[in-house]
């Protein structure tokens, strides 16, 4: 069922770039990515409602669910460890963020739900895994911290703008055709529940 194609993509991403991606594909990304967690997502949508501009341009952009470990040396921030955080928390906001800000790729871990998958289909976006916990691998692909916005939210929650080179492997788990791999796997596991409980002598 799985074939793995490997792509090297550059930001900003076009709709065609992401429409060709399928669940199971691997992507290495070069260009700019922006971190955002719960608080930043909430603020983006608040600003939108109030008609205020947000400090980053996300058209064709990539959002990375990540709260990095950073260090400031002189004027320059350095990302020491920057793996993904659990994406499920951003399910509340992501569909609206994709719709309103033109995001083409969301990177995180653990998968996202039906509303986000629906937005991916409708507006042409994908969701990709960066291996959970692989923080140094990620930091290694971050060539420069371009800037940070909304630092008042705290280091983990701020918008960190990273310049990346061959950032990956990113594994597509939600594509723009409506497949959602993590959900499929977990659904399958749930179907096995009865059988497993029987084997354990529970039922």
């Amino acid at each position: 069922m799985i074939y793995v194609a490997e792509y090297k993509l550059k930001t900003p991403l076009s709709e065609a770039d992401v429409r060709k991606l399928r669940v199971g594909d691997i992507v290495y990304l070069t260009g700019t990515i922006v971190t955002a967690r719960d608080a930043a997502h909430r603020r983006m949508l608040d600003y939108l409602k109030e008609g205020k501009p947000i400090p980053v341009d996300l058209r064709g952009g990539v959002i990375y669910h990540c709260g990095p470990v950073v260090q400031k040396l002189g004027d320059q921030w350095i990302a020491l460890a920057a793996g993904p955080t659990t994406s499920a928390r951003m399910d509340l906001y992501e569909a609206d963020v994709i719709k309103n800000f033109g995001v083409r790729m969301v990177i995180g871990k653990g998968g996202m739900g039906a509303r986000t998958a629906q937005a991916c289909r409708e507006y042409g976006a994908v969701y990709a895994y960066f291996t959970g916990g692989a923080a140094v691998l990620a930091a290694n692909a971050i060539k420069r911290v371009v800037r940070v916005e909304w630092l008042d939210l705290g280091i983990p929650e701020a918008l960190w703008v990273f310049e990346v080179e061959d950032f990956g492997p990113l594994l597509i788990t939600i594509d723009s055709e409506g497949r959602n791999l993590t959900e499929e796997v977990v659904e399958q596991a749930k179907k096995k529940r009865e059988e497993v409980l029987k084997k354990l002598g529970v039922t």
Binding site: G67, A81, G83, A134, A135, V136, L137
Partner: peptide, 17 residues
């Protein structure tokens, strides 16, 4: 690979410390 890199560069193995 990440475990190896963390040891090599002496950086936290996961950003969630």
């Amino acid at each position: 690979k990440n475990i190896e890199l963390a040891e090599k560069f002496k950086k936290p193995v996961c950003q969630d410390t």
